[in-house]
Design a protein around this nucleic acid. Sequence first.
DNA 1: AAAGTTGCCTGCAAGC
DNA 2: TGCTTGCAGGCAACTT
Length: 275
Amino acid sequence: MPELPEVETVMRGIAPVLDGAVIKKVEVHRDTLRWPIPADLAAQLEGKRVSALRRRAKYILVDIEDAPTLLIHLGMSGRIQVYGPGQTRPERQKHDHILLQTESGGTLIYNDPRRFGAWLLIDDESHPLLAPLGPEPLGNKFDATVLRSGLTGKRTPIKSALLDQHLVAGLGNIYVCEALFRAGIRPTRRADKVKVKEMEPLAAAIRAVLREAIASGGSSLRDHVQVNGELGYFQHNFDVYGRDGEVCKNTGCGQKIKRLVQSGRSSFFCPGCQP
DNA sequence: AAAGTTGCCTGCAAGC
DNA sequence: TGCTTGCAGGCAACTT
């Protein structure tokens, strides 16, 4: 379920239970996700207080007092559910790999059928997973200039270039398609052929698509202590993603959305609006 | 039952 | 020619 907006939504959703909480118990029921879960995870976290929750690209970072930072990635199918002190949580389900309990009676459950996710302990952002990441698209270091320099000389399709987390961090397959639609750029165009005057609209489209997705995901969670990552995507209706054969939403266009495969991933675009 | 939101790694090709 | 870099494809494991 996770691109940047979904990860942001999950992070906000777990904050009420985790932020400032003291971790009482950590149960690990699998030794490996994408990578081995640190054998000393429980020992490192138990008895420590969570000092902050952050997001970097598609990673959730849980800062712990007097301990390494917990890095969580949801991969393709990672989900997190949290239960407040008063709530009874269900029996452990299939693919519930990690359970975390707080002193105040909160519970966090990590479920991940495909196990492409990650739970790691890191010292700081110089960690090899984080250091090479590009700027946050919603931060002040991302703009048209970043795009321009990042796309120069790239013969790969613009779609692939934007999926590269080293150019800009946090975009995935869905929101790249959505952003390119808004910017009126066909996903197959060579990255270095995207014009300079298209950079600003593209940067703006990326920011807008992500902001709106966060807003819609966040609102769906407002009254839920339970975090369900699916809400982010579920509540959002996309302009092109998954709409192969359906009519373009732009007024007066009337053309049908097309699907194609680039580097093994589906792309969706409007032939009329994305020349 | 084909396709799926993730990212790392490989092997090959292009370019200098 | 040999090195570096970049890119397309494969893969991980399971659900719908």
